[in-house]
Amino acid sequence: MSRIARRFAALKAQGRGALIPYLQACDPDYDTSLALLRAMPGAGADLIEIGVPFSDPSADGPTIQLAARRGLKAGASMVRVLEMVARFREDDADTPIILMGYLNPIEAYGHARFCADAARAGVDGLIIVDMPPEEADLLDGPAVEAGLDIIRLVAPTTDDARLPMVCGSASGFIYYVSITGVTGTRTASSDELAAALPRLRAATDLPVAIGFGIRSPEQAAAAVRAADAAVVASALIATLEDSLDEEGRATPDTLPRVLAQLSDLAKAVRSAR
């Protein structure tokens, strides 16, 4: 059983949903983001998404765009991201790590080599925003071979004709993009979520995580009442950004502030049901 499946099974046994925080690798620098990554499980992260910085994040809103820019300026590269995961794995063997990003840095690394190196570093799953199932052929084989889950995105526009195909090729969990839009903007209403989830449940037995637009503890709690996990990204990054000094460097406030916010989210998620 993969780390992702184990974690969701354990949470199901406890009768609660998962909190999946997101951080952008090397934002604002390698050491700070590694320290944040290492502290996240203690603050209540059940799984963690690491954003791989890309020069052209065309599905991301302003907050993650700026985070990616800071990460690249601090020297982020795929090699550094995998190194960061390997360092994290030195003292955490259980928390699933999912890399989220765009396809081109993986193409540049080489599909098969990337999957092998990512699995060796301790990565469990991949979310690739600009790789719909129709274009996944070059990556799916090496990912399966390396034991990596390919987490598919489902959107409000994914129609019934398409949904079985998308879910059929998914593993790990389904990432439901709860709004039509970029990251960190609008929030889906509970009515919208209530309408979307039965359709998804009918198409897959995999756990469902809800992402895009979840900012507050209340919204995170609503998400895990409707589904199995809540992804929080831009709200945490906005806090990190706000804690930086004028030159964009980390301050003594950076980690405590982000982790305090994460704890509040975790409390809400754990008491949601």
């Binding site: 600009d130 719909p132 274009e135 995105l153 489902v154 959107a155 526009t157 994914t158 129609d159 998308v166």
Partner: peptide, 12 residues
């Protein structure tokens, strides 16, 4: 070529 777009855009 191909269609390397986010799932939201794929149906469109």
């Amino acid at each position: 070529g191909g269609r390397f777009v986010a799932e939201t855009l794929m149906p469109l």
